[in-house]
Amino acid sequence: MNLNEEVELLKGVPIFSKVEQARLKLLAFTSERVNFGVGQEVCHQGDPGDTMYVILGGTADVLIDTPNGQITVAEMKRNSFFGEIAILCDVPRTATIKAKEPLATLKITKDMFYRLVAEFPEMAIEIMRELAHRLEDTNQKLRAATRAA
């Protein structure tokens, strides 16, 4: 995949949709393209995190450690992003991300992430929206589990 194709893919990611093309080109150029095979971990719950990832292709499972073993709590696909919580909160990874099928990602460093958020406040709003959606989804699942218990 060439730089222009990566820029086109990044335009489809909601958090980058309002970022100008020249900045997306810089992001694509300065970020690392990383591919993962089926079953390969992208990151592991509890590990330190200083990068976020954007899925360019494929799907991944979001796994949480429990006393009874890992459980899948979500699936992420093209245009999804993850790892932002470790960057924003300076906390260890909150989940394990494992490739469900061949996975193509763009790895974005903490410094680049903060530069983009500083230059494009719209990006921060989109990240907050996504985090709010994830929180509401988690709350719904928790309410359902509590009713079932």
Rank of each mutant, 00 (worst) to 15 (best):
M1K: 14
E5S: 11
V7A: 15
L10Y: 00
K11D: 09
K11C: 10
P14A: 06
P14M: 11
K18S: 12
E20R: 09
K25G: 14
L26I: 10
A28Y: 00
F29E: 10
F29A: 14
E32C: 00
E32R: 08
R33V: 11
V34L: 05
V34T: 09
V34F: 11
V34A: 09
N35K: 11
G39K: 13
Q40T: 06
V42L: 06
H44C: 06
G46I: 02
G46M: 01
G46T: 02
D47G: 03
G49M: 11
V54L: 10
V62A: 08
P67H: 08
Q70R: 15
Q70F: 12
T72K: 15
T72D: 11
V73H: 11
E75R: 12
M76F: 11
R78Y: 14
N79P: 08
F81N: 10
F82Y: 09
G83M: 06
E84A: 08
E84C: 08
C89P: 05
D90A: 14
T94D: 09
A95L: 05
I97R: 14
K98V: 06
P102D: 04
A104Q: 08
T105Y: 14
K107L: 02
I108T: 13
T109K: 02
Y114W: 03
R115Y: 04
R115N: 04
R115K: 12
P121R: 01
E122L: 01
A124L: 06
E126H: 10
E126G: 12
M128I: 02
M128E: 02
M128F: 01
E130Q: 09
E136K: 15
T138K: 01
Q140W: 06
L142S: 06
R143A: 02
A145H: 06
T146P: 00
R147S: 00
A149F: 07
